[in-house]
Design a binder for these strands. Structure first.
Lengths: 334, 334
DNA sequence: GCTATAAATGAAAGCGCTTACATTATACTA
DNA sequence: TAGTATAATGTAAGCGCTTTCATTTATAGC
């Protein structure tokens, strides 16, 4: 592999000049620039990114921590981030945190040890305090799907409360008055916020919230099934079910089918996230769109703007969810 | 951030000795090792991975190219790879190739420029020749889901032909004699191999292959739908449909439903890949398991063994697919 | 106790760049 | 035309490690 030294020799200039044309930050005369470019071409020169990093104290890499690499959610996010970063010549190092505190910390440590210039984190188990301390260090972080007031500029969030509100409101507006709710684990802030939105819509429509019609799942489809069983077992009638995410909605829908309930004729179901699977299940799931790909993109832009000086970029911190109408919700039959 | 120099000073030894205890490759006396360890601890020392890379000519990073970061398939693969790599302290740099030749080459160039120690590639559009040339360079590569005889040791594959065979065979064994087939794009080797397996099973059971009952899709669900329309429009009866992947099977199943066809009573459908969605659609899809997570893991092990000298690892190059029985296939009703 | 050998440690070069600073060439002013 | 500001280029010192080779120290043999 050719080095900058050989290029400089062939071009008949100094190392510094070659470096200048590479980084075109300082002015180099047109003539020498061309000589250098020609020499690079001729040698098939490719800068050694590691040496660049060491000398410039900039690794041009951004670390990403997600809960899981598989699953329908993170892929979209990674895709958005990778796209944006690569276009800017930055690379992306990924690690998985598995929604466990130790594992998330470990992942973060790992990324730090890899000299990332910034971290994009989708963490769930780690405390606000930990993140605040982390952010106080000299490695910039941006948080996806987590809102911490002290770090607000570093947060890219969905308005989950609004999402929960909208999901429920549309059902209420259609005339449902007996709604059940399957929440996510309440220690996760998105689960909590979605639930808060649900309650707000209920209150707004003057519909009483019935604790018998509430069940807490863990965002997995199997918990959707078991929660649905539990709700059905209460014996308390309901014509609509709002689930805190699509996977639980899918699990619940299956149980509904097993119990001979027609969706949406006898039971309306709405989900949250708008995963791909929402289009595959039958009836197609009415849900709340979570623009996670776009948010990943935005997180990447945040880094590009704040770390890599791409001033021109427009940033947006909070995204508004929107209802995606499909087939699983309808007005109740009277 | 503390440097190795400060550690050496605090411990009262030379740089070289500190380096030795870090890499524990050379012998260092127990006493000095402890002094050094203590100094590191005290300073909160963390080696600078970039400097290590530059000096050792080893970046400890492995580049991964997948077609897409989102989608149900690659996530599993990435997950397997990341897991294995991180446990070994290597990090993973990802890029997407979008199944287009230019983009795949670009992604590979990008990873090369990032000084990866090895590349794990899931490429589709790039030619065998290109890969053979690439492999001849000094950057080791491993191929997932692609078989090139000249590079056989570097290939981690599924026996797609066998998968196609099994999918079809189970239907034939159940008594079906009128089978339709929706293939993937024939320029992809997995599509071709699966199709070959289908033909072999047909021949083995002495069932005539009817070109009217063949349609070529593109592995997307929408093409499954359109192919299904097309097959139905032929007017040629069939009681079973084998699809070259799950997504097309999902698309086809939807069209079947729209046409009032009961699955599996009137039409058996089998897919291929065993994506998560196969469990979400209704009826649950009978399919062929593609152990992509395991294969990603294996690719990572290949790298660990061949590049990072972890001799002990056992490698396996070709994986055998297996039928996953669910609800979408049954014996034909007579 | 003295040399031969092995084990532990240190000195220093170098990995391929960036960049502050020094120097030289060029353009402009009066 | 000398004098000065400015643009273009060069020099060389690092960045924080690894690793070869030389040196010192410990161990053993006699």
């Amino acid at each position: 592999m050719a080095t900058i030294y050989q290029v400089s020799e062939l071009a008949g200039v100094s190392l510094a000049t070659v470096s200048r044309v590479m980084n075109n930050n300082a002015r180099v005369s047109e003539a020498t620039r061309n000589k250098v470019l020609a020499a690079m071409e001729q040698l098939g020169y490719r800068p050694n990114s590691i040496a660049q990093s060491l000398a410039s104290n900039r690794s041009n890499s951004v670390g990403i921590l997600v809960s899981e690499l598989h699953g329908p959610f993170y892929g979209e996010m990674l895709s958005g981030i990778e796209n944006e970063c690569r276009a800017a010549g930055k690379h992306v190092i990924i690690a998985a945190g598995h929604s466990e505190e130790a594992s998330e910390k470990d992942g973060i440590e790992f990324l730090i040890s890899r000299s990332c210039d910034a971290l994009i984190l989708h963490v769930e188990a780690v405390s606000d305090d930990y993140l605040i301390k982390l952010a106080a260090g000299n490695l910039p972080i941006v948080l996806i799907n987590r809102y911490i007031p002290q770090l607000q500029d570093n947060c890219i969030c969905l308005n989950n409360e609004l999402g929960g509100y909208l999901a429920t409101k549309q059902l209420l507006a259609q005339g449902h008055t007996q709604l059940a709710y399957i929440s996510g684990p309440m220690w996760k802030s998105d689960a909590k916020d979605r639930y808060a939105g649900h309650l707000r819509a209920m209150a707004e429509f003057g519909v009483r919230f019935d604790t018998l019609l509430f069940a807490q799942g863990d965002f997995q489809d199997s918990s959707g099934s078991s929660c649905m069983q539990q709700l059905l077992a209460q014996g308390q009638a309901f014509t609509a079910l709002v689930c805190a995410n699509d996977e639980m909605a899918a699990g619940a829908m299956e149980v509904a089918r097993e119990h001979g309930l027609q969706v949406p004729q006898q039971l309306s179901i709405v989900g949250f996230d708008n995963l791909i699977l929402a289009r595959y299940i039958h009836p197609k799931l009415t849900t709340i769109d979570y623009p996670i790909g776009e948010m990943g993109r935005m997180a990447a832009r945040w880094v590009l703007k704040n770390i890599y000086q791409q001033q021109a970029l427009q940033l947006k911190n909070v995204f508004e969810p929107v209802v995606v109408w499909r087939e699983s919700a309808a007005a109740p039959v009277r």
